[in-house]
Protein backbone atom coordinates (compact mmCIF):
# COMPACT_ATOMS: atom_id res chain seq x y z
CA UNK A 1 0.00 0.00 0.00
CA UNK A 2 1.57 3.35 -0.96
CA UNK A 3 1.23 6.33 1.34
CA UNK A 4 -1.75 7.87 -0.46
CA UNK A 5 -3.57 4.53 -0.45
CA UNK A 6 -3.06 4.40 3.32
CA UNK A 7 -4.29 8.00 3.59
CA UNK A 8 -7.45 7.23 1.59
CA UNK A 9 -8.22 4.08 3.56
CA UNK A 10 -8.03 6.10 6.79
CA UNK A 11 -10.11 8.92 5.32
CA UNK A 12 -13.00 6.63 4.50
CA UNK A 13 -12.84 4.42 7.57
CA UNK A 14 -13.15 6.27 10.90
CA UNK A 15 -12.09 3.10 12.75
CA UNK A 16 -8.64 3.12 11.16
CA UNK A 17 -5.65 4.86 12.69
CA UNK A 18 -4.54 7.99 10.88
CA UNK A 19 -1.46 7.62 8.62
CA UNK A 20 1.79 7.05 10.51
CA UNK A 21 3.84 9.67 8.65
CA UNK A 22 1.89 12.67 9.99
CA UNK A 23 3.39 15.14 12.43
CA UNK A 24 2.32 18.32 14.19
CA UNK A 25 4.45 21.25 15.30
CA UNK A 26 3.38 21.01 18.92
CA UNK A 27 3.46 17.25 19.23
CA UNK A 28 -0.31 17.10 19.60
CA UNK A 29 -2.12 14.00 18.40
CA UNK A 30 -2.28 14.29 14.58
CA UNK A 31 -5.54 12.32 14.62
CA UNK A 32 -7.41 15.47 15.66
CA UNK A 33 -6.02 17.30 12.64
CA UNK A 34 -6.49 14.34 10.30
CA UNK A 35 -10.14 14.46 11.36
CA UNK A 36 -10.44 17.75 9.45
CA UNK A 37 -9.72 15.89 6.20
CA UNK A 38 -12.09 13.08 7.15
CA UNK A 39 -14.80 15.61 7.81
CA UNK A 40 -14.11 17.62 4.63
CA UNK A 41 -14.37 14.54 2.44
CA UNK A 42 -17.49 13.17 4.08
CA UNK A 43 -19.40 16.42 4.56
CA UNK A 44 -18.61 17.85 1.12
CA UNK A 45 -19.84 14.67 -0.55
CA UNK A 46 -22.94 14.53 1.65
CA UNK A 47 -23.57 18.18 0.71
CA UNK A 48 -23.28 17.24 -2.96
CA UNK A 49 -25.89 14.50 -2.50
CA UNK A 50 -28.16 16.84 -0.54
CA UNK A 51 -27.97 19.33 -3.41
CA UNK A 52 -28.87 16.64 -5.96
CA UNK A 53 -31.61 14.92 -3.90
CA UNK A 54 -33.47 17.72 -2.08
CA UNK A 55 -36.86 16.01 -2.02
CA UNK A 56 -35.40 12.79 -0.61
CA UNK A 57 -33.86 14.94 2.12
CA UNK A 58 -37.18 16.67 2.80
CA UNK A 59 -38.97 13.33 3.02
CA UNK A 60 -36.63 11.84 5.62
CA UNK A 61 -35.36 14.98 7.34
CA UNK A 62 -31.85 16.36 7.32
CA UNK A 63 -30.48 14.25 10.19
CA UNK A 64 -31.63 10.96 8.71
CA UNK A 65 -30.54 12.01 5.22
CA UNK A 66 -27.02 12.91 6.31
CA UNK A 67 -26.63 9.68 8.26
CA UNK A 68 -27.87 7.65 5.28
CA UNK A 69 -25.68 9.59 2.85
CA UNK A 70 -22.63 9.07 5.10
CA UNK A 71 -23.08 5.31 4.84
CA UNK A 72 -23.40 5.63 1.06
CA UNK A 73 -20.35 7.91 0.70
CA UNK A 74 -18.14 5.52 2.67
CA UNK A 75 -19.47 2.56 0.72
CA UNK A 76 -19.52 4.23 -2.71
CA UNK A 77 -17.17 7.23 -2.88
CA UNK A 78 -17.23 9.03 -6.25
CA UNK A 79 -15.65 7.32 -9.22
CA UNK A 80 -15.94 10.59 -11.10
CA UNK A 81 -14.35 14.02 -10.67
CA UNK A 82 -17.56 15.64 -11.85
CA UNK A 83 -19.88 15.84 -8.86
CA UNK A 84 -22.96 16.35 -11.04
CA UNK A 85 -22.43 12.69 -12.00
CA UNK A 86 -22.10 11.45 -8.42
CA UNK A 87 -24.91 9.41 -6.93
CA UNK A 88 -26.01 7.39 -9.97
CA UNK A 89 -26.50 4.35 -7.73
CA UNK A 90 -27.77 6.28 -4.71
CA UNK A 91 -31.40 5.29 -5.54
CA UNK A 92 -30.44 1.59 -5.60
CA UNK A 93 -28.60 2.07 -2.31
CA UNK A 94 -31.68 3.69 -0.78
CA UNK A 95 -33.79 0.79 -1.98
CA UNK A 96 -31.63 -1.60 0.02
CA UNK A 97 -31.13 0.68 3.03
CA UNK A 98 -33.06 -1.12 5.78
CA UNK A 99 -33.67 1.92 8.05
CA UNK A 100 -35.56 3.56 5.15
CA UNK A 101 -37.72 0.50 4.43
CA UNK A 102 -40.82 2.18 5.90
CA UNK A 103 -40.72 4.63 2.95
CA UNK A 104 -40.88 2.19 0.01
CA UNK A 105 -41.34 5.07 -2.48
CA UNK A 106 -38.12 6.82 -1.40
CA UNK A 107 -35.88 5.07 -3.96
CA UNK A 108 -38.18 6.09 -6.82
CA UNK A 109 -38.20 9.70 -5.63
CA UNK A 110 -34.40 9.51 -5.75
CA UNK A 111 -34.61 8.06 -9.29
CA UNK A 112 -36.79 10.99 -10.31
CA UNK A 113 -34.34 13.48 -8.83
CA UNK A 114 -31.48 11.76 -10.63
CA UNK A 115 -33.36 12.17 -13.92
CA UNK A 116 -33.80 15.86 -13.12
CA UNK A 117 -30.05 16.37 -12.55
CA UNK A 118 -29.27 14.55 -15.80
CA UNK A 119 -31.84 16.60 -17.69
CA UNK A 120 -30.43 19.84 -16.27
CA UNK A 121 -26.91 19.13 -17.53
CA UNK A 122 -27.76 17.13 -20.69
CA UNK A 123 -26.51 18.17 -24.10
CA UNK A 124 -28.40 21.01 -25.74
CA UNK A 125 -30.62 20.09 -28.69
CA UNK A 126 -32.79 22.56 -30.55
CA UNK A 127 -36.45 21.51 -30.80
CA UNK A 128 -37.68 20.44 -34.19
CA UNK A 129 -39.06 23.29 -36.21
CA UNK A 130 -42.86 23.14 -35.84
CA UNK A 131 -43.31 23.44 -39.62
CA UNK A 132 -41.21 20.34 -40.22
CA UNK A 133 -43.42 18.23 -37.99
CA UNK A 134 -46.57 19.83 -39.38
CA UNK A 135 -45.45 18.79 -42.87
CA UNK A 136 -44.84 15.24 -41.69
CA UNK A 137 -48.20 15.07 -39.93
CA UNK A 138 -49.91 16.31 -43.09
CA UNK A 139 -48.91 13.07 -44.82
CA UNK A 140 -50.83 10.49 -42.75
CA UNK A 141 -50.08 7.65 -45.18
CA UNK A 142 -46.40 7.90 -44.27
CA UNK A 143 -46.89 8.56 -40.57
CA UNK A 144 -46.28 4.96 -39.52
CA UNK A 145 -42.72 5.04 -40.86
CA UNK A 146 -41.86 8.34 -39.24
CA UNK A 147 -38.87 8.24 -36.91
CA UNK A 148 -38.74 10.84 -34.15
CA UNK A 149 -35.63 11.62 -32.17
CA UNK A 150 -36.14 13.03 -28.68
CA UNK A 151 -33.93 15.43 -26.73
CA UNK A 152 -30.97 13.97 -24.78
CA UNK A 153 -32.36 15.48 -21.58
CA UNK A 154 -35.47 13.31 -21.67
CA UNK A 155 -35.95 10.61 -19.06
CA UNK A 156 -38.76 8.25 -18.06
CA UNK A 157 -39.67 6.72 -14.74
CA UNK A 158 -42.35 4.08 -14.40
CA UNK A 159 -43.09 3.84 -10.69
CA UNK A 160 -45.42 1.80 -8.51
CA UNK A 161 -45.79 4.93 -6.38
CA UNK A 162 -47.12 8.44 -6.82
CA UNK A 163 -43.71 9.96 -7.53
CA UNK A 164 -44.99 12.81 -9.68
CA UNK A 165 -47.47 13.90 -7.01
CA UNK A 166 -44.82 13.58 -4.30
CA UNK A 167 -42.54 15.76 -6.38
CA UNK A 168 -45.30 18.31 -6.95
CA UNK A 169 -46.15 18.35 -3.24
CA UNK A 170 -42.56 19.28 -2.45
CA UNK A 171 -42.69 22.11 -4.94
CA UNK A 172 -45.74 23.44 -3.12
CA UNK A 173 -48.10 22.55 -5.96
CA UNK A 174 -50.28 20.34 -3.74
CA UNK A 175 -50.24 19.12 -0.17
CA UNK A 176 -48.81 15.78 0.90
CA UNK A 177 -52.17 14.86 2.44
CA UNK A 178 -53.68 14.91 -1.05
CA UNK A 179 -51.18 12.35 -2.36
CA UNK A 180 -52.25 8.71 -2.61
CA UNK A 181 -48.77 7.23 -2.26
CA UNK A 182 -49.66 3.81 -3.64
CA UNK A 183 -50.99 5.11 -6.92
CA UNK A 184 -48.66 4.00 -9.73
CA UNK A 185 -47.43 6.92 -11.84
CA UNK A 186 -45.25 7.44 -14.89
CA UNK A 187 -42.99 10.49 -14.90
CA UNK A 188 -41.58 12.22 -17.95
CA UNK A 189 -38.58 14.43 -17.24
CA UNK A 190 -37.40 16.83 -19.88
CA UNK A 191 -35.80 20.20 -20.34
CA UNK A 192 -37.91 22.91 -21.90
CA UNK A 193 -35.43 25.64 -22.76
CA UNK A 194 -33.44 26.04 -19.54
CA UNK A 195 -36.16 24.66 -17.25
CA UNK A 196 -36.36 21.03 -16.20
CA UNK A 197 -39.96 19.83 -16.10
CA UNK A 198 -41.49 16.80 -14.41
CA UNK A 199 -44.72 15.71 -16.07
CA UNK A 200 -47.12 12.96 -15.12
CA UNK A 201 -47.96 10.89 -18.22
CA UNK A 202 -50.17 7.91 -19.01
CA UNK A 203 -48.59 4.48 -19.20
CA UNK A 204 -49.34 4.38 -22.95
CA UNK A 205 -47.40 7.63 -23.43
CA UNK A 206 -44.47 6.12 -21.56
CA UNK A 207 -44.52 3.04 -23.79
CA UNK A 208 -44.60 5.18 -26.93
CA UNK A 209 -41.72 7.35 -25.73
CA UNK A 210 -39.70 4.32 -24.72
CA UNK A 211 -40.24 2.80 -28.18
CA UNK A 212 -39.22 6.05 -29.89
CA UNK A 213 -36.08 6.18 -27.74
CA UNK A 214 -35.31 2.66 -28.98
CA UNK A 215 -35.54 3.90 -32.58
CA UNK A 216 -38.85 2.33 -33.51
CA UNK A 217 -40.97 4.11 -36.12
CA UNK A 218 -44.17 5.80 -35.04
CA UNK A 219 -46.43 3.02 -36.34
CA UNK A 220 -44.80 0.25 -34.37
CA UNK A 221 -44.45 2.48 -31.32
CA UNK A 222 -48.15 3.33 -31.44
CA UNK A 223 -49.13 -0.35 -31.61
CA UNK A 224 -47.06 -1.04 -28.49
CA UNK A 225 -48.67 1.90 -26.71
CA UNK A 226 -52.18 0.79 -27.65
CA UNK A 227 -51.45 -2.75 -26.49
CA UNK A 228 -50.55 -1.37 -23.07
CA UNK A 229 -53.22 1.35 -22.89
CA UNK A 230 -56.29 1.00 -25.16
CA UNK A 231 -57.19 4.65 -24.48
CA UNK A 232 -53.78 5.83 -25.72
CA UNK A 233 -54.16 9.05 -27.74
CA UNK A 234 -51.29 9.55 -30.19
CA UNK A 235 -52.28 13.10 -31.10
CA UNK A 236 -52.38 14.24 -27.49
CA UNK A 237 -49.09 12.53 -26.74
CA UNK A 238 -47.29 14.12 -29.71
CA UNK A 239 -48.75 17.53 -28.88
CA UNK A 240 -47.42 17.11 -25.36
CA UNK A 241 -43.92 16.32 -26.62
CA UNK A 242 -43.97 19.08 -29.21
CA UNK A 243 -45.13 21.74 -26.76
CA UNK A 244 -42.27 20.84 -24.44
CA UNK A 245 -39.75 21.02 -27.28
CA UNK A 246 -38.88 17.36 -26.73
CA UNK A 247 -38.76 16.32 -30.40
CA UNK A 248 -35.50 17.29 -32.06
CA UNK A 249 -35.41 15.44 -35.41
CA UNK A 250 -37.72 13.58 -37.70
CA UNK A 251 -37.06 11.35 -40.69
CA UNK A 252 -38.73 8.53 -42.56
CA UNK A 253 -37.70 4.99 -41.96
CA UNK A 254 -37.60 3.84 -45.57
CA UNK A 255 -36.20 0.43 -44.65
CA UNK A 256 -39.38 -0.68 -42.93
CA UNK A 257 -42.63 -1.57 -44.70
CA UNK A 258 -45.73 0.28 -43.62
CA UNK A 259 -47.91 -1.78 -41.30
Amino acid sequence: MNSQAEFVAALLDPERDCPADLKTWNGSDPAARFAVYRNNVLSSLIDALAASFPVVQQLVGETFFRAMAAVYVRHSPPRTRILADYGADFPAFIQGFAPAASLPYLADVARLELLRIRAYHAADAAPLDADALATALAAPERLASLLLRLQPALGLLDSAFAVVSLWAAHQGALTLAEVDLDQAQCALVLRNGLEVEVLGIRSGDAVLIQALLQGRPLGAATQLALACDPAFDLGACLAHLLRAGAITHCAYDTQRPLP
Binding site: Q4, A5, F7, V8, L11, Y37, N40, V41, S44, L45, A48, P77, P78, R79, T80, R81, L83
Partner: peptide, 12 residues
Amino acid sequence: SSHGEVFLNDLL
Protein backbone atom coordinates in the same frame (compact mmCIF):
# COMPACT_ATOMS: atom_id res chain seq x y z
CA SER B 1 -7.71 14.49 -4.67
CA SER B 2 -7.92 11.09 -6.37
CA HIS B 3 -6.59 7.66 -5.68
CA GLY B 4 -7.23 4.68 -7.92
CA GLU B 5 -10.67 5.41 -9.33
CA VAL B 6 -11.87 7.17 -6.20
CA PHE B 7 -12.29 10.94 -6.13
CA LEU B 8 -12.20 12.37 -2.60
CA ASN B 9 -13.42 15.90 -3.41
CA ASP B 10 -10.87 17.47 -1.09
CA LEU B 11 -7.42 18.98 -1.52
CA LEU B 12 -5.18 16.54 0.30
